[in-house]
Design a protein around this nucleic acid. Sequence first.
DNA 1: CTGTTAGCGCGTTCAT
DNA 2: ATGAACGCGCTAACAG
Lengths: 371, 371
Amino acid sequence: MHKKQLLYFFTIIVLLNQLVAAEITTVRMQNNKLPTIKEIAKKLNVSVSTVSRALHDHPSIGLVTTMRVHKVAKELGYEVNKSAIYFKERKTYTIGVIIPSLAEPFFSSALCGVEDFAGQFNYNVIIGQSLDSFEREKRIVENMKDHRVDGILVSLTKETSTYEHFDNLKKYNIPIVFFDRVPQKKDIHFVSCNLHSGMLQAISRFVDAGHKKIGLINGPAKMAATLQRLEIYFKCLKENNLPINYDIIASTTLSKDDNIKAIRKLIDQDEMPTAVMVFNDYVLLDCIATVKAAGLEVNKDISFISFANLPIWEYMDTRPLASIEQFSYKQASIATDFLFKLIDANNKGDHTEVNYLQQIIDSEMVNYPLK
Amino acid sequence: MHKKQLLYFFTIIVLLNQLVAAEITTVRMQNNKLPTIKEIAKKLNVSVSTVSRALHDHPSIGLVTTMRVHKVAKELGYEVNKSAIYFKERKTYTIGVIIPSLAEPFFSSALCGVEDFAGQFNYNVIIGQSLDSFEREKRIVENMKDHRVDGILVSLTKETSTYEHFDNLKKYNIPIVFFDRVPQKKDIHFVSCNLHSGMLQAISRFVDAGHKKIGLINGPAKMAATLQRLEIYFKCLKENNLPINYDIIASTTLSKDDNIKAIRKLIDQDEMPTAVMVFNDYVLLDCIATVKAAGLEVNKDISFISFANLPIWEYMDTRPLASIEQFSYKQASIATDFLFKLIDANNKGDHTEVNYLQQIIDSEMVNYPLK
DNA sequence: CTGTTAGCGCGTTCAT
DNA sequence: ATGAACGCGCTAACAG
C-alpha cells in the first residue's frame, strides 16, 4: 500500500516537472498545417504508434507517457484527422440523399427525417436535388459514388423508369434504400406509403356524405404514383359499389395551367362530379381558385380531398374536407434506419445478402374541421 | 509518311492482339474490394506510376501502354478512389451548411441556393440543422470540422451570441461565411439583407394610404433581427414624421400563443393601430386569424405588411397588402460564391488575409393585389 | 511498455 | 518511356 502511494506521488512530481517544462517551450505553430501525431512524437522523442496508442488511452502505454502525450497534444491543439481514418477504414461516415426538390415541403421534411436520424449516429448527410431530371439523378449518383458515401437514400424523379445507374452501385458495396417514389421492382430495399388506406377513408367519407359522382384529378401518366392512384381509385369505387365514369377523371402534368384545365374539364359539364379526389394539395390550390372563379362554392357545390396534408390549410379560409397524409418524415426515418442496417451488415462483411428490407406504411386521412 | 502509317498499322495489330488476349482472361473480381491501380499494374506487369500516368493520359507514356491500361481499367471496372486523393490533397470538396431548420421555406430555399451553386463546382454539400439550439450548433461545427469540410456556411440560431466555436475554425483554415442571421461583428465574411429598404417602402405605403398609427409586432428580444427591425422601424417612422408610440409595439417569442397575445395587445385598445408591420409571415398568419375572430376585417379595419413573402399568400383569400422579400436563395448563392473565393485563396496559399467579404443586399416589398 | 514496419490508394519527384 | 521510392496521417500486426 505504502509503496503504491509512493509511486503515485513520484509520478505526479515527474509529471509536474514535465508540464512546466513543456509550457515554457509552447510556441504554437499557427503558421500553416495542422499538427499530426508525428509532430507530437518528435517533440516527445517517442514513436508515432506510442502517440497513437496514448491518445486512445491504450492500456499498454504507461501512465506517464500517456499524460505527456495528452499534454503536448493539447498544447499543439492537436485533433485527429478523421479523413485519414476514413480513408484507411474505407468509410466516410456520410450518406447521400437524392430528392427531387428541396423546395417541396414533402421532401424537405423527409430530409429532416434523415438528418435527425443520421445525426444520432454521427453520420453526415450530403444532399442532391435531382429537380426531377433523370440526367441530374444519374450525375448525382455518380458524384456520390465518387465521394464513396457509405449509402444512399433516393426518392426517384418523375422521369426515372430505368435503374441501371443504381445497380451499378452494388459493385461498390454502396447500399441504397428508396423511399416514397420507389422503383417498380421487387429486388430492392424500400419504404413507401400505401395510398389505399387513406383513399378508402376518403371515398367512404364522400359516400357517407351522400356523394355519388366522385371524380379524380390524377398526375402525369409516367409517374408511378399516378397509375397507383388510378388503380386504387377504381378499387375504392368498387368497394363502395360505385360505377367507373371516365368523364369525371382528368389528369394534369402538375403545371398551373394544366391543373386549371383538369378541374375545368370536370366542372364544365352538365353532370359534374360533386366530389373530387385530387392528386395533391398544390393541384388542389389551383382547383379551388378555379372553382371559386367559376362561381361555385367549395364544400357545397363541390367537395375535395387531396394528398399531402400541407400545414398551410390550417390558415386557409377555403380548404378541402381532408387531406391524405403520407408521412414523409416517417418514411425517411425508416428508410434511414434500413440504410444503417445495411451499412452495418457491410461493415461486418455480412455478404449473406440480407433479405430485402421493405416496408409499406399506411397513409391516413386527416380531417379539416369546417371554419 | 509511309513510315508513320506503317507504324500506326502495326500498333493497331499489336493492340488488337492484346485486347483479345485480355478479354479471354477477363474474370471480374466481384468478390469484395474495389480494383486499384496496383491491380492494374500487376495485371500488366508495369509499375503503378505508369498506370497512374496512363490513366491521366500523360504524354510521356506510350500510346500502346496507355491503351492497354485503359482497357484493363475498364475491364476491372476501375474508378479512381477520390477519398484517397482528397486525403492526400487535404481537401474534401465538401462544404457544410448550418441552418436553423429545414422545415422553414426560407432556409430550405437558401439551401437550394447553396446546392445549385456548389453543384456547378462539383462540390458536395453536407447539412446540419441547429434547430435553433446553440449546443447543437456547436456540435455540428465540431462535426464538420472533424470531417474537414473545405468551408462552412452558417445562419445562426436564435440563441447564438458568442462565436468562439467559429473562431476555432481559423486554426483549421476552414473559412466561414455567414448569411442572413449573422454575428454582430466586423471581422467576418457575411451576406445579409438590409431591412431598411423594404420597411421604408412598407411604411411609406401605409402612410400614402392615410395610416397614422402604424404598429409593430416584433420578434424575440435576443434575436439580432428583432433589434434591427425596431431601429429601422423607428427610423422609418421618423422619415415619415410619425411619432413613436410604445402602446402599438408588441413582441412575440414566435410561438402561436405568443403571436396571438401580441396582436391582441394591439387590437384590444381604444386607439388601436390601423396598420401593423409584422415580424414575419408565420406570425402574420396567426394575427389574421385572431383579428378575424375578433370581428375585424383585414385590409379595412386593419392592414398588415410582413416579412418573408411566402408563396402561400397567392392562394390565400385574406392576405397582407404586401410582404418584404429577403431573398434567401440569393443571399445563400452570394454567400456560397464568397466561400468559394475564400477556399480558392486557401488553395493558393493566399494567406494575405483577403479583405472581409461582406455584402448587404436590399430587401424589397412585394405587393399583393387585393382579391 | 514501446518501437519498427507495413499498408490504405494515389500522385509525384527523381532517377534511369 | 518507365520504374522506384516517398509521403499524406493514422492504425495495427509483429517484435522486442
